[in-house]
Each structure stands twice: as C-alpha cells, then as structure tokens.
Amino acid sequence: MQPFGPSLTRALSIAALGIGLALPLAAKAQAPAGAANTLDAVRARGSLICGVNTGLAGFAQPDSQGVWRGFDADYCRAVAAAIFGDPNKVRFVPTTAQVRFTALQSGEVDMLARNTTWTLSRDTSLGLDFTATNFYDGQGFMVKASAGVKSAKELEGATICVQPGTTTEQNLTDWARANRIRFTPVVIERLEELLSAYVSGRCDAYTTDVSGLAATRSAQQRPADHLILPDIISKEPLALGVRQGDARFADITRWVHFLLLSAEEFGITQANVDQMANDPRPEVQRILGKNGGLGEMLGLQNGWAVNVLKAVGNYGELFQRHLVPLGIQRGPNALWTQGGLQFSPPFR
C-alpha cells in the first residue's frame, strides 16, 4: 500500500472537517438537532461510505481482487442491503486508528465498522454515537513463542508495540501502572509498520484487542511462532459508530445488527430465508416483513431484512465465515440463549 496513505487521508479529513465546520450547516432549518441527515445523503449519493480497518484479516481486508472481505466489511454490506436492497452499493474507506474519528466527523465516511471500542469519552466528546456492539472483546498480548513468556506479568522491562490513538495504548499504561511493570512503548500509526517492528524483534510484545491478535497471528508465515498470552487486561466492546444526533441512521445500523442476531436466534439463514417467509411464528413473520411494517418504521422498505440476510447471512454465519477460521471462539459473542452477551431486543 502506498506509504502516503494515512498522513494524506488525515490531512484531507481534517481539512474537510475544518471547511465543513466553518460553513453554515446545509439544512439548518430542517434539522434543528443539527444532524445532517445521513440516510438521505446516502440515498442521494446512491452508495454507503463505510469506514473500515486498513487491513485486518477476518474483519476487513481487501482480497486479491481488491474486494473487501471480513466481518466488519459484511456489516457495511448489510447496512447497504438494508437501505438499497443491494449489498454492493458500498464504498470502503480504510482508516487507521488515528484518523477514524476525524473521518466520521468530517463526513468522509457515513459510519464506522472498525474495531472501535465504545467508551464514555468517545461517546460524549467525539461527536459520534455508538449504536451496537458487534463484537465483545478484550485486550491481550502476543509474544514470540521462543521468548518463553507465559504471562503478561512477566513483561517487566519489555518493549511493547502499540498503535497510537487507541484504547489499547491507554489500557496498557493503566495496566502497567497497576501492576508496577515498566515497559518501553514503540508507537507506530500504520499497522503494517507496527507489525514489522514486532516481527523483526524491535518489540518483545504486541498488544491490541485479542481478536486483532488472532487475526494478525493467523496472517503470519508461521502462526505457531507466536503466542497469545492468557491475560485479558480490559473490556473492549467493539461497536458500530455513526455521527452524533442522527437518530434515524443510528437506528438503522443498530437494528441491522439486531436483525443479524434475531435471525440466528430464530434459525433464519442465508440459505433458508425464502422458505422461512412461510414460518408460522409471529416474530419470524415480523422480522421478515410479512407483518408489522417494521421496515417502514425504520424508514426502509419492509423487505429490508430479507435483503440483508440474503446478502450476508445471520450473525452466526458471519462469525463462522470470517472469524472461526482465525481460531476465534464465540465466547462472549454467543447468543444470550447460549450463555453469551449477544442479545437482540424483540422485533415488535
């Protein structure tokens, strides 16, 4: 990838933000809450612009044809399918951890589906709203198996690679302080560069969300050379993000996620969605838009759910397709009926 990517993207999005802020809001009168209406903008444009990772296996990464693949990428497709009935009406914009919020604020992307942890300060002061936690995660460490380290507590004096602008770097300092561990950080914005620092041995350990560790590990030439330590030092609810104050668009992204969960709960899959239309259970009928007019309440067509599920399948299918091959277990991301945390409010 071109080395000028992030700095240029950042410069552009900050410039766009500055210009956007300095000019009066386009539709000040119609939208008193001040939120630009993302849904209308997306419809008018004819495509959804979705902020994803710069390349994290299993979550969002371009394949050899340049098609973005992964769990987060499919969330973008699902939202596009809900709005347009066509999962391909998405443009993917890779964002580093540092630029993602500016990209959303400036309107360069409509939403973030990008390993972004839901925290209070982000929710309140960054001008964005988190709508749904699509992956419950926690922060961990990865080391070279040859280092003989078995627990994060043994990392005293280690050099640790970490991406800037993440909760990861803040958790790391908190944890080190609490455990009286001294460490030397190596802080590099571009994931590729950071990983090469870790792989070359510049760092003793690499820390990020465990899902990110698993993805990175699986992408190494010899995954077995790397060990993910058992310690989990934080809660990382990775959530979808939209601009603050746009309740309609927020609802859409939130209920797309709930749709994926409910579909799994009621056994609706990519393959059987058409037959399921004849399922007598009332909630299934409401989900699939036969009854209840729920789609219209969201400002969509009643067939939205069928379109989404045909495009990407249910939550379990997404997980199976993208994350299980990386060795990521359902764990807390199992449905609540299976003892996990993923829970959809009723479709009613």
Binding site: L21, L25, A33, G34, A35
Partner: peptide, 15 residues
C-alpha cells in the same frame, strides 16, 4: 467562519 465553526462544533457535540 469562526462563529459557524463554534456553532457547528456545538451542534455536533464535538468538545
């Protein structure tokens, strides 16, 4: 420009 910026930041709830 300045007053627009301040207003817009406030509306978008950006600190």
């Amino acid at each position: 420009l300045w007053s627009n910026t301040v207003h817009n930041l406030e509306v978008r709830r950006i600190a």
